[in-house]
Design a protein around this nucleic acid. Structure first.
Lengths: 351, 351
DNA sequence: CTGTTAGCGCCTTCAC
DNA sequence: GTGAAGGCGCTAACAG
């Protein structure tokens, strides 16, 4: 059944096998451009079949000057936040016949630069930046320049998170949602908070902290500077920060972790001291990671449509370029669950 | 600073700018092949810099007849099992200067075929299959043929899971580990089990069930056919299956879910009925998913070095081809935790 | 060590 | 509707 050719079978081989010219074979395979007589087309297809021909996408891209590859840059694919976004993006990309190249920065923002540059080398038709912007403005400028170069080769760019770059953006309303969360927690009766604030240079973390603080202010609840503990944006970072809250005997009834992964780490730290909710210190997160919905007590959080974020980003990349960067706002919804019961079971500061 | 050229800048542009020939420019940029006089090389590099040149990886691959792209096929990137493997694979690939193309089958095994075919079209230098094999042998044969074609174009293949394909394989010792787990649970004192067995056609699920059964047999503990509940390999599948255990009032003290994600779903179902451990029905999983290590009670499971699986697969793909497929066995370690206390707190069947 | 030349596999005007 | 020819950007013999 199989042909035992040694070298790779090329389009020319198919053409010869079908007894037609190179161009006819090409046209028959990529239906759409010019019409090919039905019987010839059939012969070409048959020839391709028997020869087990596979068109060389690279060569095709070179000749066409355009590829069907889209780049997806995430901070850490093993973080459920990013893997959910990636799932949405990959599914959508595939629906549009695109293949996705994945790159992880492993939380080193400067690697975004290298990856965008690499994607330019690949002549990717699009790039999606899923990670948070950082406060480093020189990095921001260099990234902007790199993205500019990328766009000049015909690539389209979409960012998910903050709109700090002159590219299409899916803007996550971290600030507003964190504000809502703070107000909801005050509504429940909390008045003494600590925040596991993540890395100070990460804008996503900053915005969530700022929004939370704003919500507290609106509710006339103070947040002492000493109650804001910075650390890694990971489970272990949350654990360490919460341990710090306990170690310093901060007088709080509720902890806000700026993401769910940290909240789970924080809850583990509380549990190690017998201080978990209910009865201990309440704790809330942010993101509503699906895989974390079964932790106990169930985590109060802000729900984000993670997969949709990825879908939207791909959609933006697929749209024809516009002069003005597009902006799509996505809001989060507060979800109150068992991890934040009203305070008072156990007198605050009495530990 | 930037040159405002309209068309993309090509290697020829760089050569002209540096006042050298095309090949000299090429050699200067890809250091290694032939030597270039230092001053000329410097001029080329400078020219590339000022022109903001980016070598076209596609054209390079076409000319070389070899790409630096590796394909990674997963069932579902939002499943933490696969995202952990992917993290290891991506990190390792990058260390070797490879770029990763990611594809999700979304648990439809037949899509593996399409993706391998697509990777052949991309002339990827390697492909990694991370998902479980299935029992469908005609699918297996077709996949084998497709992989053969891929390898004939110079691509290397590595599979993670079962060694059912004539390619390099990272074999997970699901059977042996599940057997160990069963014996450990019997050791603890359990004698009445149910299994949330996953899809019957998935070999990973089958092997874990078979191994578990074998361990029970060794301990002279029966497993009635009615105590094996099949379902989806997901959190919701675990939830549904465990609900079935409860609904049928199966007389068991311990449930084995064939993966952690299902175990967590199962635990949620038990909790909904007030039957969670301790005190209720014990439950164990498989994989030791890092993100699930903080569930309560802590999940008894089999630890798998997930990231290493991805690392090993990439390593295999990078090795020079051998006549015989390589095999690397990876074993799992039983980790007993709080979700499987000894039975007896609550008389079995007394619910 | 450098430049010239012929490809790599494919697409796409252009005449017929 | 079909084929011949030129070109995409780059590499790799081959001569000098």
């Amino acid at each position: 059944m199989d042909d035992e050719r040694l070298g790779p079978v090329t389009l020319l081989d198919v053409a010869r096998e079908a007894g037609v010219s190179l161009s006819t074979a090409s046209r028959a395979l990529n239906r759409g451009a010019r019409q090919v007589r039905a019987d010839l087309a059939a012969r070409v297809l048959a020839a391709a079949e028997t020869l087990n021909y596979s068109t060389n996408a690279q060569a095709q891209a070179v000749a066409r000057g355009k590829s069907n590859t889209i780049g997806l840059i995430v901070s850490d694919i093993s973080d459920p936040y990013f893997s959910a976004i990636a799932a949405g993006a990959i599914r959508t990309a595939e629906e549009h016949g695109l293949v996705v190249m994945m790159a992880c920065t492993f939380r080193r923002p400067e690697r975004e630069l290298e990856y965008v540059s690499m994607l330019r080398g690949q002549r990717a038709c699009g790039a999606i930046l899923t990670g948070s912007r950082v406060t480093d403005t020189v990095l921001l400028d260099r990234l902007g320049a790199e993205l500019d170069a990328f766009q000049r080769t015909g690539g389209r760019v979409a960012a998910i998170s903050q709109n700090k770059l002159p590219v299409d953006t899916v803007l996550i309303e971290n600030r507003a949602a964190a504000r809502d969360l703070a107000e909801a927690l005050c509504q429940v009766g909390h008045r003494q908070f600590a925040v596991l604030a993540g890395p100070p240079e990460l804008m996503t973390a900053r915005d969530r902290l700022a929004g939370f603080r704003q919500g507290l202010t609106r509710s006339q609840v103070p947040l002492p500077a000493a109650h804001v503990i910075h650390g890694e944006f990971t489970r272990d970072g949350g654990y360490a920060a919460a341990r710090e809250v306990v170690r310093r005997r901060l007088d709080v009834t509720c902890i806000f972790a700026v993401n769910d992964v940290m909240a789970v780490g924080g809850m583990a730290a509380l549990r190690d001291r017998g201080l978990e909710p209910p009865g201990g210190i309440a704790i809330a997160g942010f993101d509503d990671i699906p895989a974390l919905r079964d932790v106990t007590p169930a985590l109060t959080t802000v729900r984000l449509p993670l997969e949709e974020l990825g879908v939207s980003a791909v959609d933006m990349v697929l749209q024809p370029p516009s002069d003005k960067p597009r902006l799509r706002r996505v809001q989060g919804d507060v979800v109150l669950r068992a991890s934040t019961p009203p305070p008072g079971k156990r007198p605050a500061g009495k530990r």
